[in-house]
Simulated assay, not measured.
Amino acid sequence: MVSKLDVWLSHYLDQGSSTTFLQATESAKAAGYKCKDDNFKKVGYQNKLKCEEKILKWLDEAGLSESALKLKLLSLLDAKEVKIFQYEGGIVESDEFNSLGIQIKALDMALKMKGLYAPEKRDHTIEEKKPPTLTIVTSSNNE
């Protein structure tokens, strides 16, 4: 008998499915887990942790090993592009130039991978809010 975890994994790694491929929450729904909407995310996350070795093996077999990803990232740091557009009825092609948008994203990813960003500062202090005060003024005169 096939376990729900195995069914979840088959949905998670199904490249033909745009809704479940590498989507832990949607894979939990498709696998038939019975829970409230908020809990599908939790089930998906837990299943992803349980199947981490199988997922990493699948990624390696698909050509997405750690070294292959690093090489791809390095190539993106040198990405080039050419712009093609229409001008006065003709097609004009620019010279090749650095694709700065792709290079910036690749550099950002590389810095994150190496842990070179400073951790985000989060304010965890709780300020006590005092309730508003009400002052009642009475007049002794009947005016």
Results as ranks from 00 to 15, higher is better:
Glu61Leu: 01
Gln23Asn: 14
Val7Lys: 15
Glu127Gly: 11
Asn47Thr: 09
Gly32Tyr: 02
Lys41Val: 09
Thr138Ile: 11
Ile91Arg: 12
Leu22Lys: 14
Lys114Asp: 08
Leu76Asp: 10
Leu107Gly: 05
Lys130Ser: 07
Phe97His: 03
Lys48Ala: 13
Met113Gln: 14
Lys34Ala: 04
Thr19Cys: 05
Lys42Tyr: 08
Leu111Glu: 04
Ala118Val: 03
Met109Gly: 02
Glu93Phe: 15
Lys83His: 13
Asp6Leu: 10
Lys80Asp: 00
Val137Asn: 14
Leu22Gly: 08
Cys35Tyr: 07
Leu111Met: 10
Lys114Leu: 14
Leu116Gly: 10
Lys105Met: 01
Gln86Ile: 00
Leu111Cys: 06
Ser99Cys: 09
Glu61Trp: 03
Lys121Cys: 00
Gly32Cys: 01
Ile91Phe: 08
Pro132Asp: 05
Asn141Ile: 14
Lys34Phe: 02
Val92Cys: 02
Trp58Lys: 12
Glu93Arg: 15
Lys114Cys: 12
Leu13Ile: 10
Cys51Asp: 02
Glu127Cys: 05
Glu66Cys: 00
Ile91Leu: 12
Lys70Met: 07
Asp95Trp: 00
Ala68Leu: 15
Ser65Lys: 01
Tyr12Trp: 13
Pro131Phe: 07
Lys50Gly: 10
Ala79Tyr: 02
Gln103Pro: 06
Asn142Trp: 06
Asp6Trp: 11
Lys130Gln: 05
Leu76Ser: 05
Asn141Val: 14
Gln103Glu: 04
Ser139Trp: 11
Asp108Ile: 01
Asp123Phe: 00
Ser18Arg: 14
His11Leu: 08
Thr20Pro: 03
Tyr45Arg: 10
Lys48Gln: 13
